[in-house]
């Protein structure tokens, strides 16, 4: 019965991004910054490190697919990039000891990587005309700050949740 908590936690994280967008006023800072919530993605990274990598990749595929269909309509983007970055992260954490501060840097790196991959893809399919400079100042920095704050607040609860779930599954 407790095993059902894992999908529930992931689903809650999945919707948390859009719920954040409901509360967050888009005109904050006069629209000068566009912070993008990647809370689900952070949860996925925690899952890959503190729970199980392969399960995280599977969830990444599935929910990335949902994300593409429901929110963006550009099929394949998150579907592909979520598992890819989870895989890269699992390799990185093997080389670097995953203490919480080190993992913080890795998570920020991953978010920057994800944003840049998505930006590159959007430029490629001509869905945007934003210049690289604009993208870096308006979106990337703001996103890193927002998700960094999320990490600072939720890192310990998320880690504990996944460690406890791991015990349930073992």
């Amino acid at each position: 019965m407790k095993k059902a908590l894992l999908p529930l936690l992931i689903v809650a994280l999945f919707y948390s991004d859009s719920v954040f967008m409901i509360f967050f006023s888009e005109q904050a800072f006069n629209g000068a910054y566009v912070p993008v919530p990647h809370f689900f993605f952070i949860g996925l990274l925690f899952m890959s490190v503190f729970f199980d990598r392969n399960t995280a990749i599977k969830y990444g595929f599935f929910f990335g697919f949902l994300f593409d269909m429901f929110y963006t309509g550009l099929l394949g983007a998150y579907f592909f990039f979520f598992p890819l970055i989870v895989y890269i992260t699992s390799k990185l954490t093997k080389w670097l000891h995953s203490t919480m501060p080190v993992f913080f840097v890795i998570v920020l790196f991953d978010i920057a990587l994800l944003e840049m991959l998505i930006y590159g893809l959007n430029v490629l399919v001509q869905r945007t005309t934003v210049s690289l400079e604009q993208f870096a100042y308006v979106r990337l920095l703001a996103s890193l700050v927002l998700n960094g704050l999320f990490y600072i607040v939720f890192a310990v609860p998320l880690r504990n949740a996944f460690l406890r779930l791991k015990k349930v599954f073992d």
Partner: peptide, 13 residues
Amino acid sequence: IARNPDRWYELIT
């Protein structure tokens, strides 16, 4: 019910 959290395409649901 939702605004694209990815914030690229100005889509709402």
